[in-house]
Design a protein around this nucleic acid. Structure first.
Length: 741
DNA sequence: TTTCCTGAATTTTTT
DNA sequence: ATTCAGGAAA
């Protein structure tokens, strides 16, 4: 049962307004998630709305999961039928059912940023485009923006007329779409774009979903882009029960096409919109809110609002300035450690926020050194690691035979003596016959001049066929194990035998583990489903609040989270706001976006907010002298602790040329290769020894033959009764002793 | 032809 | 850290 008395007046009003369009302007920490949750519960309980008629769109998968869980607790039965998901996973679900209407196969692959770049490179090569002038990154961004605005290649070309540069980009865009379709692949933007296209071309499909989603709610509305706006616009058109929740001051994804204008457009598109403002903050102290309000007030053209709280004044803010980043990090480690040891806080109460991922490494180093347990979000994505991408490429080829990109990746991994020249011949044959690369491999005997490599290619094709045939019988994690063994990938790693190979193997083991979890938790597990999950998860989704560690993350990743103690680090002009935004063509807008980012960061803090800056920082291989961020200057001095007020700073933004590029690079390298402790800790002692009988989750019971001590783990050789002799790493095998020798 | 080696270049923020 | 280009060795 829900109790509306627990809500304030505005929150309650929002819950009770169930019919027609509703725009909820919710300041940071104003309890909007709570409102959404109560609203769903109220619809089901009191208005007798069927759970499957409700669609809630959240920003991350994690938020979706939490929302469902919390609604579960209130309404109990039926909540699993509510569609709670991100824009992207919603679109995948719809497209898996209907995309054949648009000329793709339903088994499509989702391409990540790396895949996109590979495609673009290929196109630039074929069209002889100079990638010095047309950088792959810029081309991709331009294409992405076009799709975000729902511009087809044709439309883009029409608009590009007369602008030579954009005409070239139009050609690339067109080629790019052709290539993706040929590979039966979609990029992130396609997921949204094609769903809109589907709805616009097939009214009966649209009608089905309009009738299905009679009540629609969208969280983080300020970060929707034009296609997303269009998507929810047409979905909600029939019943018009659309509730969007957002805060224009927290719009931080403009670079990704997010359009704050959607908040203003909303009332135009839905003229009878009810607007409710939530301004009472339940998260932070008044000091923190005053500071955040003071900063954000420097932005023009925002909806005026001011957060207030009943939480009391709280402590003043702290500002600290250090000589360099290493001292900044060392101090934070020391301070956090001291607070935890005094029993004032737990590690999980702290968050260290920074503008760019590159800034994280110094914190990692110092935290390791001081034994401060931490978790870093973002940075090098787990799924972006070479060995993981290799295995995923195998899975993609098995799942979608038309994904030539994946075939190219694995054709000679591990080494099969099928080199670039042979691959070129097969590709040429494929082009001449107008067939896919994989199909050309199947017909390799027809390829002119293929010679001895033919047998190797046939062996590869046979291998893939074998995996495909086994698909229905094998679990996904078993399939991965098959791939490892039968392709020789594991063999190659074993032969390398160094520590790096071991880490790679561990990463693959982690992938296997993720596959196991997926199969346990998914409703209808499938290979496509697993690959899709891998493609759409964000690092932040894996965050576990019960994990007692300090969190290291970018400001962007911190959105939607809260912590008792927040450190905003790297508060220097040039870092935050970034040079790119200061020097940009539309500098004012760009800096306003950075300022909103700062506002988001500040409002994450519940009890205490500390800002830190440094005098010099190693950037792009040079030691730069930096001045304190203008955002710090925008905070009224009286809000800071007396002794830590930002000192009036020398106005010198000059790079220090005394260090040559080479020297800096060497220094950087030296740091990179410092002996590094590992997060996967080696067991102090194993519970078993040679001769003991042990059990393994998959292989069953066996006898330990040998234990070898490696760099950071033990390698254990076990003779299993059923599975024979296997070698494995102790930290992964999780062997349990069943009897002693 | 394939493989192995080296040096150079690339990092704003992300689904 | 990874990938790519270019050149030498096998």
């Amino acid at each position: 049962m829900i109790d509306l008395e627990l809500l304030n007046k505005e929150q309650r009003e929002a819950v009770l307004h169930t019919k027609g369009p509703l725009l909820l302007l919710a300041g940071a920490g104003s309890g909007k998630t709570r409102v959404l949750m109560y609203r769903i519960a109220y619809l089901i309980e009191t208005c007798e709305v069927k759970p499957w008629n409700i669609l809630a769109i959240t920003f991350t998968n994690k938020a979706a999961g939490e929302m469902r869980e919390r609604v579960d607790k209130i309404v109990g039965e039926g909540s699993e039928n509510i569609w709670v998901s991100t824009f992207h996973s919603l679109c995948v679900r719809i497209l898996r059912r209907h995309i054949d209407k648009l000329g793709y196969e339903n088994q499509f692959t989702i391409y990540d940023a790396d895949d996109q770049k590979t495609v673009i490179k290929g196109i630039c090569g074929r069209l002889s485009i100079d990638t010095q002038i047309y950088k792959e990154k810029d081309l991709l961004r331009e294409i992405s923006h076009a799709k975000e605005k729902y511009q087809s290649p044709k439309e883009y070309q029409r608009l590009a007329k007369g602008d030579f540069r954009r005409e070239v980009i139009a050609d690339v865009y067109q080629e790019y779409q052709k290539e993706l379709k040929k590979n039966n692949a979609l990029d992130f933007d396609d997921l949204l774009y094609l769903t809109v296209e589907l709805f616009q071309s097939y009214p009966e499909v649209l009608l089905y979903y309009q009738d299905r989603f009679r009540y629609i709610m969208v969280d983080e509305y300020q970060d929707t882009n034009t296609v997303q706006f269009r998507l929810i616009g047409i979905l909600a058109k029939k019943y018009r029960n659309l509730c969007v929740v957002g805060d224009d001051d927290q719009s931080i994804y403009r670079f990704r096409g997010a359009n704050v204008g959607n908040i203003l457009n909303f009332e135009e598109e839905f003229p009878d919109t009810k607007v409710i403002k939530l301004e009472q903050n339940y998260r932070s102290t008044q000091h923190i809110l005053d500071a955040a309000n003071a900063v954000i007030q420097n932005n023009k053209g925002r909806k005026e609002k001011a957060l207030w709280t009943e939480n009391g004044q709280g402590e003043p803010l702290t500002f600290l300035c250090f000589q360099d980043a290493s001292q900044e990090a060392a101090y934070l480690a020391k301070e956090i450690l001291a607070k935890v040891e005094k029993g004032k806080a737990r590690y999980q109460d702290f968050a260290v926020l920074y503008r760019t991922n590159a800034q994280s490494r110094v914190f990692e180093e110092k935290f390791l050194l001081s034994n401060v347990p931490y978790k870093m979000i973002g940075g090098v994505n787990f799924y972006a690691r070479k060995e993981v991408k290799d295995i995923l490429a195998y899975l993609k080829v098995i799942d979608n035979g038309r994904d030539d990109l994946a075939v190219h990746r694995i054709i000679n991994v591990p080494k099969r003596s099928i080199g670039a020249v042979s691959v070129g011949k097969v590709q040429a044959y494929a082009n001449s016959q107008e067939i896919g690369f994989y199909q050309a491999l199947e017909e390799a005997s027809m390829v002119p001049g293929i010679g001895k490599v033919l047998t190797k290619i046939q062996a590869f094709v046979h291998l893939i066929e074998e995996f495909r045939a086994a698909l229905s019988k094998r679990k996904i994690y078993e399939l991965i194990e098959d791939i490892l063994e039968k392709s020789g990938y594991a063999q190659e790693l074993r032969e390398e035998g160094n520590e790096e190979a071991q880490v790679r193997m561990e990463n693959i083991q982690e992938l296997i583990h993720k596959a196991m979890i997926y199969e346990r938790t998914a409703k209808e597990p499938s290979l496509s489903g697993f690959l899709e999950e891998v493609a759409l998860v964000a690092d932040i989704d894996s965050l576990d609040e019960s994990d007692n560690r300090v969190l290291l993350l970018t400001l962007h990743n911190a959105k939607g989270l809260e912590f008792p103690y927040v450190y905003l680090t790297g508060m220097e002009d040039g870092v935050f706001p970034s040079f790119l935004s200061i020097l940009a063509e539309h500098s004012r807008e760009e800096i306003e976006e950075e300022r909103r980012l700062c506002y988001v960061g500040m409002t994450r803090a519940m009890k205490a907010l500390t800002m830190t800056a440094v005098h010099t920082r190693l950037m792009h291989g040079k030691n730069q002298r930096l001045v304190v961020s203008r955002f710090v200057q925008e905070v009224p001095r009286e809000l800071f602790r007396e002794k830590t007020m930002p000192s009036s700073v020398q106005r010198t933004v000059k790079s220090d040329n005394s260090t040559t590029y080479q020297k800096a690079r060497e220094a950087f390298r030296a740091k990179t290769f410092e002996p590094k402790q590992f997060k996967v800790t080696k067991a102090e002692a194993l519970e078993y020894q040679t001769g003991d009988r042990v059990s393994h989750i998959k292989f069953g019971i066996g006898t330990v033959l040998d234990i070898t001590e490696g760099g950071k783990d033990y390698e254990v050789k076990v003779d299993f009764d059923k599975a024979g002799i296997k070698k494995m790493f102790a930290s992964f095998a999780k062997l349990k002793k069943v009897e002693s020798l």
